[in-house]
Deep mutational scan, measured.
Amino acid sequence: QVALSRTQVCGILREELFQGDAFHQSDTHIFIIMGASGDLAKKKIYPTIWWLFRDGLLPENTFIVGYARSRLTVADIRKQSEPFFKATPEEKLKLEDFFARNSYVAGQYDDAASYQRLNSHMNALHLGSQANRLFYLALPPTVYEAVTKNIHESCMSQIGWNRIIVEKPFGRDLQSSDRLSNHISSLFREDQIYRIDHYLGKEMVQNLMVLRFANRIFGPIWNRDNIACVILTFKEPFGTEGRGGYFDEFGIIRDVMQNHLLQMLCLVAMEKPASTNSDDVRDEKVKVLKCISEVQANNVVLGQYVGNPDGEGEATKGYLDDPTVPRGSTTATFAAVVLYVENERWDGVPFILRCGKALNERKAEVRLQFHDVAGDIFHQQCKRNELVIRVQPNEAVYTKMMTKKPGMFFNPEESELDLTYGNRYKNVKLPDAYERLILDVFCGSQMHFVRSDELREAWRIFTPLLHQIELEKPKPIPYIYGSRGPTEADELMKRVGFQYEGTYKWVNPHKL
């Protein structure tokens, strides 16, 4: 086992960053958080920038500027975001240094004079007029057009580079997404736009490419001749908990499936790229999406959770019991969808996408189930092999396979070949997804960000279904809070070829 401390991990990262040409360590950078008073800024962006600063992973002359409508001070920003920093008493001095680099400007999102004030403020910072500028839009999409237009007109660096990070949702359907994309691309070049999907920053999602293309053993079996089906799962054990009003506007397909799960599907299904260059990788992902037809209604199961009468606390409440959810809402909190990649490698292999709230566990994984062994000599005792990439929690890679049961006879039983990170790298604290992705933006690497043509294809696949749901308002199937979801989803999976045995229990190697 390799035991690495946080300091050692960050030392390795620093070495990698400083050796590259793309990370300008000594240049002045300004990180501007648009929507600095909001939840995302408070819980994710400010803490992430602090962790990067604490670990010495930001360029040395980096300033952080918050911008929002609320009249706040840096002290206010500190008060609301610091509880999420997880700072230790030993880091007190470092924390003071961090907040000394912070400033805040209040202004409207659609007022040109406010942006001119913001620009004057940035120019007044040390070497601010020639600094590289990175704008993070932690804002609702309704203000994107006004904000990007004003940034472009008043706040661009004339000497350094300018980059803009856009948070999902990128529209509600193909038409609104196209409108937003066309607007942003009329102001910024594609190499300046970073559409963030934080799932692409997760260690195991990034590991998929290495697993596939750096190991000879997987190449020959990664196709329709050997793989019976692919299941991509995202499960949350909690409901909307008072935030249903926002969720109800989008629903589970827009929230998770059309982005996170579809991105994971691309990494499983794509061909080997010409290189690890950002556009070479994204070219292959677009090719996969172009091979997927629009979702067919007979390959869809929609569910909505109801309270568990035997549960406790939140578990007793259904989705419609959330006071922020519109009365009688038919918005799905669970969806199972089957897609097919219609190309030579994957023809006929079902890709089953499942996601839901208020389920029995927290889990995100990719599961490849292989065909049955031909010419069975073990009297149907063999179960199908599976390769599982567990994204969260407890990152893991393992192969479910058959071995001989101890004893006199040739009785096979299920076991696993474990390729888990935790076994080799004991207690290594890896940077989280937002840390990686923000560092990628500083480096100018777009590999783990969504390109406009990729986004367009993703919406093309799901828009007809979303429009049909909005028009017909089908009643989702009720499922109990804390269950596996509607049984109809299991029946759909069985119908397209997935075999669920229920006889195997994964042993978490992190707890051995």
Rank of each mutant, 00 (worst) to 15 (best):
Leu465Ser: 04
Ile469Phe: 09
Trp346Tyr: 01
Val507Pro: 14
Thr330Ala: 06
Arg460Ile: 00
Lys426Gly: 14
Gln258Cys: 15
Lys473Ala: 05
Arg456Val: 08
Leu368Pro: 02
Glu361Asp: 12
Thr333Val: 01
Arg390Gln: 13
His448Thr: 15
Glu342Asn: 11
Ser415Phe: 11
Val391Gly: 15
Asn423Thr: 10
Glu294His: 05
Gly307Asp: 05
Tyr340Pro: 01
Ser278Asp: 13
Lys290His: 14
Gly482His: 05
Val338His: 06
Lys357Val: 07
Val391Thr: 14
Tyr305Phe: 12
Thr487Asp: 12
Phe442Thr: 07
Lys285Tyr: 13
Leu261Val: 05
Ala332Asp: 06
Asp321Lys: 06
Ser483Asn: 04
Leu417Val: 15
Lys511Ile: 13
Gly313Glu: 04
Ser278Asn: 14
Asn259Tyr: 12
Ala396Lys: 13
Asn508Arg: 11
Gly348Thr: 06
Tyr481Phe: 10
Gly328Ala: 04
Pro509Cys: 10
Lys505Cys: 15
Ser275Trp: 03
Met447Tyr: 13
Asp376Glu: 06
Pro309Thr: 10
Phe442Ile: 11
Gln381His: 08
Pro478His: 11
Glu457Tyr: 04
Val268Cys: 09
Ile480Asn: 07
Val295Asn: 03
Gly328Asn: 01
Lys404Glu: 14
Asn360Gln: 04
Phe378Ile: 02
Glu294Trp: 04
Arg495Asn: 11
Asn411Met: 05
Asn298Ser: 14
Ala274Asn: 12
Glu284Asp: 04
Glu413Lys: 09
Asn343Thr: 04
Ala297Gln: 05
Thr420Asn: 04
Lys285Ser: 09
Ala274Arg: 10
Val441Phe: 04
Gly482Phe: 01
Cys382Trp: 06
Lys290Ile: 01
Ile477Phe: 14
Glu416His: 10
Glu416Ser: 08
Leu455Tyr: 03
His448Ser: 14
Arg456Lys: 13
Leu261Gln: 03
Asn277Phe: 11
Ile352Phe: 07
Pro309His: 04
Ile377Trp: 15
Ala336Cys: 09
Asp310Leu: 10
Ile292Val: 13
Asn308Tyr: 12
His467Phe: 09
Pro476Tyr: 02
Leu455Gly: 02
Val306His: 08
Thr503Leu: 12
Gln446Met: 06
Pro309Leu: 08
Val300Lys: 05
Thr331Asn: 09
Asn343Ala: 04
Asn423Leu: 04
Asp376Gln: 13
Val286Arg: 11
Arg282Ala: 08
Ala274Met: 03
Lys505Met: 12
Gln392His: 07
Gly307His: 08
Met493Gln: 11
His379Thr: 09
Asp279Tyr: 08
Ser445Met: 11
Val325Pro: 02
Thr331Gln: 07
Pro326Leu: 12
Val288Lys: 04
Ile377Phe: 14
Asp310His: 08
Leu339Val: 09
Phe498Cys: 15
Thr333Ile: 01
Ser293Pro: 07
Cys266Gly: 12
Leu320Met: 11
Thr333Cys: 02
Ser415Thr: 09
Phe378Trp: 09
Asn299Glu: 13
Gly356Phe: 00
Glu488Trp: 03
Glu344Val: 07
Pro350Tyr: 01
Leu302Pro: 01
Tyr340Ile: 03
Leu289Glu: 00
Cys291Glu: 07
Pro350Trp: 00
Asn508Tyr: 13
Thr276Ser: 06
Leu302Met: 11
Asn427Thr: 14
Glu271Lys: 03
Gln446Cys: 05
Met270His: 03
Gly356Arg: 00
Ile389Thr: 04
Asn423Ala: 15
Val281Met: 14
Ala374Ser: 14
Asn299Phe: 06
Asp280Leu: 05
Glu386Val: 03
Lys511Cys: 06
Val337Arg: 01
Ala489Ser: 15
Gln499His: 05
Pro350Gly: 00
Gln499Thr: 11
Ala297Thr: 13
Gly444Met: 03
Leu465Asn: 00
Asp372Phe: 03
Glu386Lys: 03
Met408Ile: 12
Val388Asn: 06
Asn423Val: 06
Arg390Asn: 15
Ser278Thr: 07
Asp283Gly: 07
Lys290Met: 06
Leu439Lys: 05
Asp440Trp: 02
Lys475Phe: 05
Cys382Ile: 13
Glu314Pro: 13
Asp322Gly: 05
Leu437Gln: 15
Thr420Asp: 09
Leu320Gly: 14
Glu457Val: 03
Arg282Trp: 03
Gly303Tyr: 00
Val281Gln: 06
His448Met: 15
Gly311Asp: 02
Glu386His: 07
Gly313Arg: 11
Asp376Ser: 15
Pro464Asn: 08
Val256Met: 13
Lys290Glu: 08
Glu470Cys: 07
Ala396Val: 15
Glu414Gly: 10
Asn394Lys: 13
Arg390Ala: 15
Tyr425Leu: 12
Val295Ala: 14
Gly348Ala: 05
Asn308Phe: 09
Val388Asp: 00
Leu368Thr: 02
Asn427Phe: 13
Ser293Ala: 06
Ala269Pro: 01
Glu386Phe: 01
Gly407Ala: 15
Glu365Arg: 01
Ala458Leu: 07
Ala489Gln: 09
Gln296Val: 12
Arg345His: 10
Leu265Arg: 01
Leu368Gln: 00
Pro350Glu: 01
Asp347Leu: 10
Leu430Ala: 15
Ser452Cys: 04
Gln296Phe: 06
Glu413Thr: 11
Val349His: 01
Val286Leu: 14
Asp432Gln: 11
Arg354Asn: 14
Ala358Thr: 00
Gly307Ser: 07
Gln446Ser: 08
Tyr421Cys: 15
Leu465Trp: 09
Pro474Ala: 06
Asp432Met: 08
Val496Thr: 11
Thr333Trp: 01
Asp321Ser: 09
Asp347Glu: 09
Glu294Cys: 08
Asp322Ala: 08
Val268Asp: 02
